[in-house]
Design a binder for these strands. Structure first.
Lengths: 66, 66
DNA sequence: ACTAAAAGTAAAACATATTTTACATTAAGC
DNA sequence: GCTTAATGTAAAATATGTTTTACTTTTAGT
């Protein structure tokens, strides 16, 4: 599993903290997701999807063995 | 939050048990998701997305107050 | 080099998702 | 009405996601 959060966040020129606030989660949650420590809930994934204007499938990509 | 799992499952003429097996989860998990007891993880949502040939966003729809 | 903002990390507490076992209800065919 | 498959439901146990607090490291500007 990999994701494009960091890149999309860069496109919007947002810090982890700004993104966290926009999504209503903690900064550590954003950091952990970007560092692939865990996957967000589907609710959070959908909110990110909304915010970045792309599908959850485009944001989070399944890989071999997921 | 609402979802189209039950409808998509019907289109494929699958039982909850068959879907559960195809996804590698328990039947109760499928039932709980269809009955909106909780949201699946993003991993499971992505697998469903694959199986039904539609995006997570099409399968799971945000509503007011989510 | 110094400073400040941003990002990385970690442990404990808490919230949510999932499994297992088991039983109750509904739907369809006979 | 009986039987059986499918669905609904529930409690306890386990796994995973999230927050909070706090500290470290990196990055960029001066």
């Amino acid at each position: 599993m990999r994701n494009n959060i960091k890149v999309e966040r860069a496109k919007k020129d947002m810090t982890q903290e700004q993104l966290a606030e926009a999504l209503g989660v903690s900064r550590q949650t954003i950091n952990a997701i970007e560092k692939n420590k865990y996957l967000p809930s589907t609710l959070l994934a959908l909110k990110m999807s909304d915010l970045f204007g792309m599908t959850v499938n485009e944001l989070f990509i399944l890989e071999e063995g997921d």
